[in-house]
Amino acid sequence: MSLRLQARKLACERDDRWLFRGLDLDIRAGEIVRVEGPNGSGKTTLLKILSGQLADYHGELFWNEAPMRRSRKAFLANLLYLGHSPGVKAALTPLENLAWYQALAGEPDDAAARLEALASVGLVGFEEVPAGQLSAGQQRRVALARLTLIPRPLWVLDEPFTAIDRDGVVALEARLSAHARQGGCVLVTTHHALAASSALRRIRLGQGGDDAGA
Protein backbone atom coordinates (compact mmCIF):
# COMPACT_ATOMS: atom_id res chain seq x y z
CA MET A 1 0.00 0.00 0.00
CA SER A 2 1.32 3.42 -0.85
CA LEU A 3 1.25 6.33 1.50
CA ARG A 4 -0.70 9.39 0.64
CA LEU A 5 -2.18 12.17 2.71
CA GLN A 6 -4.35 14.61 0.80
CA ALA A 7 -6.25 17.68 1.76
CA ARG A 8 -8.74 19.44 -0.47
CA LYS A 9 -9.87 23.02 -0.03
CA LEU A 10 -8.74 23.02 3.55
CA ALA A 11 -9.69 26.13 5.47
CA CYS A 12 -9.65 27.04 9.09
CA GLU A 13 -11.07 30.04 10.87
CA ARG A 14 -10.03 31.25 14.28
CA ASP A 15 -11.57 34.25 16.03
CA ASP A 16 -13.18 35.57 12.81
CA ARG A 17 -9.89 35.36 10.96
CA TRP A 18 -9.00 32.87 8.25
CA LEU A 19 -5.76 31.14 9.16
CA PHE A 20 -5.69 29.54 5.74
CA ARG A 21 -8.18 29.05 2.97
CA GLY A 22 -8.38 26.85 -0.09
CA LEU A 23 -5.31 24.87 0.89
CA ASP A 24 -4.74 21.83 -1.33
CA LEU A 25 -2.14 19.37 -0.22
CA ASP A 26 -0.89 16.10 -1.57
CA ILE A 27 1.76 14.51 0.57
CA ARG A 28 3.32 11.27 -0.61
CA ALA A 29 5.94 8.82 0.52
CA GLY A 30 9.51 10.07 0.42
CA GLU A 31 8.71 13.72 1.04
CA ILE A 32 9.66 16.16 3.73
CA VAL A 33 7.08 18.90 3.89
CA ARG A 34 7.99 21.96 5.84
CA VAL A 35 5.15 24.22 6.95
CA GLU A 36 6.39 27.78 7.15
CA GLY A 37 4.93 31.00 8.34
CA PRO A 38 5.21 33.68 10.98
CA ASN A 39 4.04 33.12 14.56
CA GLY A 40 0.30 32.79 14.76
CA SER A 41 -0.11 31.89 11.09
CA GLY A 42 -1.70 28.55 11.94
CA LYS A 43 1.18 26.10 11.54
CA THR A 44 0.33 24.12 14.65
CA THR A 45 -3.37 24.25 13.81
CA LEU A 46 -2.66 22.86 10.33
CA LEU A 47 -0.58 20.03 11.78
CA LYS A 48 -3.30 19.25 14.29
CA ILE A 49 -5.90 19.13 11.54
CA LEU A 50 -3.69 16.94 9.37
CA SER A 51 -3.00 14.59 12.27
CA GLY A 52 -6.71 14.22 12.94
CA GLN A 53 -6.82 16.05 16.24
CA LEU A 54 -8.97 19.00 15.29
CA ALA A 55 -12.33 18.56 13.66
CA ASP A 56 -13.03 22.27 13.41
CA TYR A 57 -12.13 22.91 9.76
CA HIS A 58 -13.64 23.17 6.29
CA GLY A 59 -12.55 20.95 3.46
CA GLU A 60 -11.75 17.30 3.18
CA LEU A 61 -8.92 15.03 4.23
CA PHE A 62 -8.01 11.77 2.56
CA TRP A 63 -5.72 9.05 3.76
CA ASN A 64 -4.69 6.65 0.99
CA GLU A 65 -7.57 7.89 -1.19
CA ALA A 66 -10.18 7.13 1.48
CA PRO A 67 -11.93 9.87 3.45
CA MET A 68 -10.23 10.40 6.80
CA ARG A 69 -13.45 9.91 8.73
CA ARG A 70 -13.64 6.31 7.60
CA SER A 71 -9.96 5.44 7.70
CA ARG A 72 -9.09 7.03 11.01
CA LYS A 73 -7.91 3.84 12.67
CA ALA A 74 -5.66 2.89 9.75
CA PHE A 75 -4.37 6.46 9.68
CA LEU A 76 -3.52 6.49 13.40
CA ALA A 77 -1.67 3.19 13.04
CA ASN A 78 0.64 4.96 10.59
CA LEU A 79 1.05 8.25 12.38
CA LEU A 80 3.68 9.43 14.79
CA TYR A 81 2.90 12.88 16.14
CA LEU A 82 5.20 14.98 18.28
CA GLY A 83 3.48 18.06 19.59
CA HIS A 84 4.58 21.33 21.11
CA SER A 85 4.78 19.73 24.52
CA PRO A 86 7.03 16.70 24.52
CA GLY A 87 4.50 14.44 26.24
CA VAL A 88 7.13 13.21 28.67
CA LYS A 89 6.01 12.55 32.24
CA ALA A 90 8.31 14.29 34.69
CA ALA A 91 7.82 11.70 37.42
CA LEU A 92 8.68 8.76 35.18
CA THR A 93 12.11 7.78 33.93
CA PRO A 94 12.81 7.97 30.18
CA LEU A 95 12.58 4.16 30.01
CA GLU A 96 9.17 4.13 31.68
CA ASN A 97 7.96 6.92 29.42
CA LEU A 98 8.99 4.98 26.35
CA ALA A 99 7.49 1.75 27.68
CA TRP A 100 4.08 3.42 27.79
CA TYR A 101 4.44 4.81 24.29
CA GLN A 102 5.53 1.41 23.02
CA ALA A 103 2.46 -0.26 24.49
CA LEU A 104 0.18 2.55 23.34
CA ALA A 105 1.41 2.13 19.78
CA GLY A 106 0.67 -1.59 19.90
CA GLU A 107 4.32 -2.54 19.68
CA PRO A 108 5.56 -5.58 21.59
CA ASP A 109 7.20 -4.84 24.94
CA ASP A 110 10.90 -4.74 24.16
CA ALA A 111 13.33 -3.33 26.73
CA ALA A 112 16.34 -3.65 24.42
CA ALA A 113 14.61 -1.53 21.77
CA ARG A 114 13.89 1.15 24.38
CA LEU A 115 17.53 1.27 25.46
CA GLU A 116 18.59 1.44 21.84
CA ALA A 117 16.15 4.25 21.12
CA LEU A 118 17.47 6.25 24.08
CA ALA A 119 21.04 5.60 22.93
CA SER A 120 20.11 6.87 19.47
CA VAL A 121 19.20 10.27 20.92
CA GLY A 122 22.29 10.44 23.11
CA LEU A 123 20.70 9.71 26.46
CA VAL A 124 22.95 6.87 27.54
CA GLY A 125 23.33 7.06 31.31
CA PHE A 126 20.04 8.92 31.81
CA GLU A 127 17.73 5.93 31.38
CA GLU A 128 16.77 5.70 35.04
CA VAL A 129 16.76 9.40 35.96
CA PRO A 130 13.27 10.87 36.45
CA ALA A 131 12.56 12.94 33.34
CA GLY A 132 11.74 15.95 35.53
CA GLN A 133 15.41 16.19 36.46
CA LEU A 134 16.51 16.28 32.82
CA SER A 135 16.99 19.52 30.90
CA ALA A 136 14.39 20.74 28.42
CA GLY A 137 16.55 19.56 25.54
CA GLN A 138 16.99 16.14 27.08
CA GLN A 139 13.24 15.83 27.63
CA ARG A 140 12.71 16.71 23.98
CA ARG A 141 15.22 13.99 23.12
CA VAL A 142 13.20 11.47 25.13
CA ALA A 143 10.22 12.38 22.95
CA LEU A 144 12.37 12.14 19.82
CA ALA A 145 13.47 8.64 20.86
CA ARG A 146 9.98 7.56 19.80
CA LEU A 147 11.00 8.15 16.19
CA THR A 148 13.42 5.26 16.51
CA LEU A 149 11.33 3.18 18.88
CA ILE A 150 8.03 3.17 17.04
CA PRO A 151 8.25 2.49 13.32
CA ARG A 152 5.63 4.64 11.63
CA PRO A 153 5.76 5.96 8.07
CA LEU A 154 4.09 9.34 8.63
CA TRP A 155 5.81 11.70 11.03
CA VAL A 156 4.07 14.90 12.02
CA LEU A 157 6.50 16.98 14.03
CA ASP A 158 5.62 20.33 15.56
CA GLU A 159 8.80 22.30 16.24
CA PRO A 160 10.94 19.22 16.90
CA PHE A 161 14.13 21.26 17.06
CA THR A 162 13.04 23.24 20.12
CA ALA A 163 15.69 23.16 22.86
CA ILE A 164 17.87 20.73 20.92
CA ASP A 165 21.60 21.56 20.76
CA ARG A 166 23.49 22.10 17.50
CA ASP A 167 24.78 18.53 17.13
CA GLY A 168 21.36 17.19 17.93
CA VAL A 169 19.81 19.39 15.25
CA VAL A 170 22.23 18.07 12.64
CA ALA A 171 21.54 14.48 13.67
CA LEU A 172 17.78 15.00 13.71
CA GLU A 173 17.88 16.60 10.27
CA ALA A 174 19.80 13.61 9.00
CA ARG A 175 17.23 11.36 10.68
CA LEU A 176 14.40 13.15 8.87
CA SER A 177 16.00 12.87 5.45
CA ALA A 178 16.90 9.23 6.09
CA HIS A 179 13.27 8.57 6.92
CA ALA A 180 12.14 10.24 3.69
CA ARG A 181 14.70 8.29 1.67
CA GLN A 182 13.38 5.06 3.12
CA GLY A 183 9.91 5.83 1.86
CA GLY A 184 8.56 7.58 4.91
CA CYS A 185 7.04 10.98 4.97
CA VAL A 186 7.71 13.91 7.28
CA LEU A 187 5.51 16.90 7.96
CA VAL A 188 7.35 19.43 10.05
CA THR A 189 7.09 22.99 11.31
CA THR A 190 10.28 24.71 12.31
CA HIS A 191 11.92 28.10 12.30
CA HIS A 192 15.20 26.37 11.82
CA ALA A 193 16.49 26.39 8.23
CA LEU A 194 16.40 22.85 6.89
CA ALA A 195 19.11 21.96 4.43
CA ALA A 196 17.67 22.01 0.93
CA SER A 197 17.22 18.64 -0.66
CA SER A 198 15.16 17.21 -3.47
CA ALA A 199 12.76 15.68 -0.96
CA LEU A 200 12.01 18.99 0.74
CA ARG A 201 8.80 20.84 -0.05
CA ARG A 202 7.54 24.01 1.54
CA ILE A 203 4.06 25.14 2.40
CA ARG A 204 3.86 28.78 3.23
CA LEU A 205 1.07 30.00 5.45
CA GLY A 206 0.56 33.71 5.08
CA GLN A 207 -1.66 36.29 6.68
CA GLY A 208 -5.09 34.85 6.14
CA GLY A 209 -5.03 34.97 2.36
CA ASP A 210 -5.49 32.14 -0.05
CA ASP A 211 -2.65 29.70 0.21
CA ALA A 212 -1.30 27.28 -2.26
CA GLY A 213 0.92 24.33 -1.57
CA ALA A 214 4.15 25.25 -3.34
Binding site: K73, A77, N78, P151, P153, A174, R175, A178, Q182
Partner: peptide, 28 residues
Protein backbone atom coordinates in the same frame (compact mmCIF):
# COMPACT_ATOMS: atom_id res chain seq x y z
CA UNK B 1 21.59 10.51 17.33
CA UNK B 2 23.37 8.67 14.55
CA UNK B 3 23.56 10.03 11.06
CA UNK B 4 21.73 8.47 8.16
CA UNK B 5 24.65 6.18 7.39
CA UNK B 6 24.70 4.75 10.89
CA UNK B 7 21.04 3.81 10.95
CA UNK B 8 20.23 0.25 9.95
CA UNK B 9 18.48 1.06 6.72
CA UNK B 10 17.44 -2.44 5.75
CA UNK B 11 15.87 -3.02 9.14
CA UNK B 12 13.96 0.24 9.03
CA UNK B 13 12.70 -0.37 5.54
CA UNK B 14 10.10 -2.75 6.85
CA UNK B 15 8.85 -0.18 9.34
CA UNK B 16 8.42 2.58 6.81
CA UNK B 17 5.93 0.76 4.65
CA UNK B 18 2.29 1.53 5.26
CA UNK B 19 0.95 -0.33 8.27
CA UNK B 20 -2.30 -2.04 9.06
CA UNK B 21 -3.80 -1.29 12.45
CA UNK B 22 -2.73 -3.86 14.97
CA UNK B 23 -4.53 -5.24 17.93
CA UNK B 24 -2.96 -4.90 21.34
CA UNK B 25 -5.63 -3.09 23.31
CA UNK B 26 -5.02 -5.30 26.35
CA UNK B 27 -1.32 -4.45 26.30
CA UNK B 28 -2.04 -0.74 26.01
Amino acid sequence: MPGPDASPVSEQQAGVACREPREGTAVA
